[in-house]
């Protein structure tokens, strides 16, 4: 296991370096390498059984990063690339999770429905991840970068600076994109709720 982890780390690091160097094929190679780990980590987060190797409860990508990448061999840019990739994967994982849960609810898990409402104050507004995913796709149609910013920050849990690094833009741009995208999505999701 130790050996395979090593080689996986090496491979991940190498593909990330290629990705940072502009090799777009590298992403294709990377995703299968990190997907399983991300899913496992995400599941653990969902069960609240984190071992707390990272300090922010939200820093799943960080944890994945620490596990999968040989940090010494990688530039900041490589790290940003990894975060971007991971954020996308987490989005897929979480939306998938939400779909499954929704399906289960239709099967009649009544007790759970009422409980969710009482949890709201603890975590902030409950977001319909499935609707958000669709709205985000529509936003990407209009501005790829704005959608990316949401993906990095909301799904990836990245800070403004990290997102800026991942997108290779300034922090101000990220903040602006965030403001526009957030208003746009809020309106879009609100309209859907109304109809």
């Amino acid at each position: 296991m130790g050996a395979s982890r090593m080689s996986k780390t090496e491979a991940t690091t190498r593909w990330l370096r290629d990705l940072a160097d502009g090799d777009s094929v590298a992403a294709e190679k990377l995703i299968p390498l990190i997907y399983d780990d991300l899913r496992r980590l995400a599941a653990r987060y969902l069960r609240r059984e984190r071992s707390d190797h990272t300090l922010q409860p939200t820093a799943l990508v960080n944890e994945a990063y620490l596990r999968l990448v040989n940090r010494d061999d990688l530039s900041w840019h490589g790290r940003a690339q990894f975060f971007a990739l991971a954020a996308r994967q987490i989005r897929i994982i979480l939306v998938d999770h939400a779909r499954k849960k929704k399906a289960a609810k239709r099967g009649g898990d009544a007790a759970r429905l009422s409980l969710d409402a009482s949890l709201t104050p603890v975590t902030g507004p409950d977001v319909d991840l499935i609707a958000l995913d669709e709205a985000l796709a529509a936003l990407a149609d209009r501005s790829e970068r704005q959608a990316k910013v949401i993906e990095l920050r909301f799904f990836g849990g990245l800070s403004v600076e990290e997102a800026a690094g991942a997108l290779n833009v300034s922090a101000t741009t990220v903040k602006d994109d965030w403001a526009v995208a957030r208003a746009w999505l809020r309106r879009r999701l609100g309209e859907e709720g109304a109809t």
Binding site: L94, V122, G156, R182
Partner: peptide, 28 residues
């Protein structure tokens, strides 16, 4: 329309998705 949806201080999307999903998947 965007401006009216702009400054709502509702915490929308501010907590990363994994947080919300985590809490929502537990029962009391």
């Amino acid at each position: 329309a965007l401006l009216t949806h702009d400054d709502a201080d509702d915490g929308f999307l501010e907590k990363p998705a994994i947080e919300t999903a985590a809490v929502a998947s537990r029962s009391i």
